[in-house]
Design a protein around this nucleic acid. Structure first.
Lengths: 146, 146
DNA sequence: ATAAAAAGTTGACAAAATCCACTAAATGCA
DNA sequence: TGCATTTAGTGGATTTTGTCAACTTTTTAT
């Protein structure tokens, strides 16, 4: 089918463009003290509020042992707190500490500045078009919609 | 400025969506024997034909020593061939071997199937909209345009 | 002519990620 | 109710990935 193949090519082209453009290939998340994965984990915990590790595993599709270690590390750094779940004694509830919250905020601010520097010269018209396009992509590709 | 901040938020949201959706976070490029980086390198050499390492470094923004080792590895696997450049005696020309070409083709076919499985249920109308949106994003964000 | 820059290689590491086996608790089901 | 299966998490061992700096050789620029 023609449009399918064209779409696949377009997605591959986009992936190539986007991984380089956003710097996902060289993965030191630009100067910040946190890796992409750490950043994502912090962000997810922040938006979830209180959650358990397997929530994050499902959300981010990462290895559970990897996450376990990551969480321990974030605990040691004082950004995350663990406690036994009452409902499920296997599970460990995790949440951000106050330090964790403020660090996450800083981290977000940092990425914001980085992104801002990539779009400084865009007119507000182009910004609107970009937002609309990104939104379209997400809506069309989102699996968990219905 | 309002539209800038909204745009930044939208890009961040998109990044979160896209890294998970495309599986860039758990980086074993889905069953294939090659990592994302290797895949990208093979693809670039294929599209460049004959090139030198620093071309790839510039294209993908990766560390030159990392690439150097990567290339050596791909040579050992028989996918890439090196030879001294005539014009520039510092440089090493690199190109795909026949095996390298066919492996790259297979690799592309594999990613294509993976992507296809993500868009099977899309109508051709949605495909068109998706392509247009991706294209818009690239056009607006592309730095090396002018 | 000579200093600076560019291409690539190598060593030494550090960080990231995976695989596997294991414990303990919860769930399914017959 | 009892037993098998699944789920949540941990820790060991290892591999893969990526970084940094030092060094050689060649080219470029002034």
């Amino acid at each position: 089918m023609y449009s399918k193949n064209r779409t696949i090519d377009e997605i591959r082209k986009f992936n190539r463009f986007y991984t380089v453009n956003m710097g996902f290939l060289s993965s030191n998340y630009f100067g910040s003290d946190y890796s992409i994965a750490e950043t994502r984990i912090l962000f997810e915990i922040m938006t979830q509020g209180i959650c358990i590790q397997s929530d994050i595993v499902k959300l981010l599709h990462i290895d559970k042992s990897y996450l376990s270690r990551m969480i321990s590390r974030l605990c040691k750094k004082g950004l995350v707190e663990k406690r036994k779940s009452k409902h499920d004694k296997r599970a460990v509830e995790i949440m951000l500490t106050e330090t964790g919250k403020s660090e996450s905020e800083k981290l977000i601010a940092l990425t914001n500045r980085r992104i801002e520097s990539q779009i400084t010269e865009l007119s507000s018209d182009k910004c609107d078009k970009l937002c609309a396009a990104l939104c379209t992509v997400m809506t069309i590709l989102d699996k968990e919609k219905d």
